[in-house]
Amino acid sequence: MVSVEQVEGRTDYPFLRQNSGSDQSKDHQVTLKGVKIHLYKLGIIARGNDACGCFPCAATDSQSLLDSVLLSQWEHCAWKGQLKYDVTTCQTKVINGEKKFVVQLNERWNSLFLEEFENNFLQPLGPISSNHIKSHKENVLFCVSQGEKESSEVVLSTMLPKDGILIIANANPVEYGHVFLVPYNINRLPLFLDKKMVELILRTAVEVNSSSFRVFFDSIISNRSDHIIFQASYFANPLPVELFPTVPVYADTHRTGIHICEVADYPLKTLVFMGNNLDSLSNIITEICSNLRVHGSAFNLLITDFGTKIFLFPQAQSLIMDRPISTWECGGYFVYGTKFGFDNASETEILKRMASVSLDDSSFQSLKHLCCSIAVNLYL
């Protein structure tokens, strides 16, 4: 395992400079009494008249600072025994069939881990507080926020920025490096997606700069109010949905650089949004998700390709559906808690499960028209 101390010892990054808090107003921070937390401050993106906040170049050979910090902190958490099992020892296989779905055997898997996390970690609509962080400090890895310098940096601080994302280890990991990404404002925990939040999540994915890193979001429709919780983990190989061909639905090469495609021949109706423009991608995703939320529609988001590609999985309500499927399941990756279920997993069973939550042709056509309309109207 890579320890935190090993990463701190790097000479090519100013990793753990103590932050006095003098560079930001206390009106925009909360004091963490008796607690120190790592802050990852994102560098400022140059926004020219034509760039409109384009992503920085990705896919470099060297490991990024944020990737190093995330993995070292997560592995240190695992080394301390904060995780319930070693997910790297779980057996996986590709099941027979055309779709090449992937299944994992995890007999210690807890399918209710997200609900337990909400109940045990998140305060009901409450602000982020010192006691809140202190009581869960073993699993809080660090915080990501927008910095004020050209380059990204990591500091150790007793002050939490007003807005940011808490990176928290998931004690029930689905894959290596599995974390919760919890957007927050010191005065509240958000209940819906907004552009600033989506942009910060995308910036985080860009900054990690790893082809294995994927971000998930599940919008579960229920009678209770849910906090906004993203998740992320590392996958050694692309998820099955990423390997399917796509059919163009909309393209705006000149103004926004956004492309919208439909994933062809996939059992779950799926759209994918692609682009190197931070503002445009976060704008369109926020508007579409807001519209789906207003209409009470469940959906999932999968962010891949260094933050430049977002899969949208709309889900239909179904009487035979005992629960909405998770984002990794939408992507073709399924976890089984028993050896019997793992050994007997079949493409037929998974196809039926995915079809039970997929939109019908008419509803999906309406969604495509809505997405195109939003894309056009955002930049009239």
Rank of each mutant, 00 (worst) to 15 (best):
L202V: 08
V208H: 03
F217L: 15
E175H: 07
R214W: 04
S225N: 13
S212M: 01
N185Y: 12
R224W: 10
V215C: 11
V208T: 10
R203M: 11
V174H: 05
S212H: 00
L160D: 04
Y176E: 04
L181Y: 06
I221H: 14
S211T: 01
I168H: 06
E199I: 05
K195I: 08
F213H: 00
A205F: 01
T204D: 00
A205K: 00
Q231G: 15
K195S: 08
I165P: 08
L193A: 10
M197R: 02
G164V: 03
L181V: 04
N223E: 14
I167T: 08
L202F: 11
V179H: 02
P190L: 09
L166M: 15
E199V: 11
H178E: 01
E175A: 14
F216N: 06
L191I: 15
K196P: 01
F180G: 07
R224N: 12
H227R: 02
M159A: 09
V179M: 09
E207I: 00
S157R: 10
R224I: 13
A171R: 11
V215F: 05
S210C: 12
V174K: 07
R214S: 09
H227F: 06
V182D: 06
I167S: 02
I167M: 10
F217A: 12
S210L: 12
V179T: 08
E175V: 02
N223F: 11
P183C: 05
Q231S: 15
F180K: 09
V174W: 03
R224M: 14
A169D: 05
M197P: 04
S225I: 14
N223W: 13
K195D: 06
H178N: 07
M197T: 09
T158E: 15
F192L: 09
V198H: 03
I165T: 12
E199R: 14
E175S: 14
F216I: 04
I168A: 10
K196C: 01
N223R: 11
L193N: 02
Q231E: 15
V215L: 14
V206M: 03
N209Q: 11
L160S: 03
L193F: 11
F213T: 00
I201Q: 03
L189Q: 12
I165R: 09
V174E: 06
E199Y: 03
D226K: 05
Y184F: 11
L160V: 06
I165C: 12
F192D: 10
L202P: 00
I229F: 13
H178Q: 05
P183L: 10
F216S: 13
I186Q: 09
F230K: 02
F217P: 13
P161Q: 12
Y184T: 01
G164C: 07
S210T: 01
Y184A: 05
M159Y: 15
F216V: 06
I167Y: 03
S222H: 14
N170L: 02
D218L: 07
I165K: 06
P173N: 08
N170C: 02
N170D: 04
A169N: 10
A169T: 03
F216E: 14
T158A: 10
L191H: 13
D218Q: 14
V208A: 01
A169W: 01
K195M: 10
L160I: 09
I221G: 13
N209F: 00
D226E: 14
H227A: 09
L202E: 02
A205T: 09
K196N: 08
I228H: 02
L166K: 12
K195A: 06
K195N: 13
I201R: 02
S157I: 03
K196W: 03
N170I: 08
G177C: 03
I168E: 09
I229N: 10
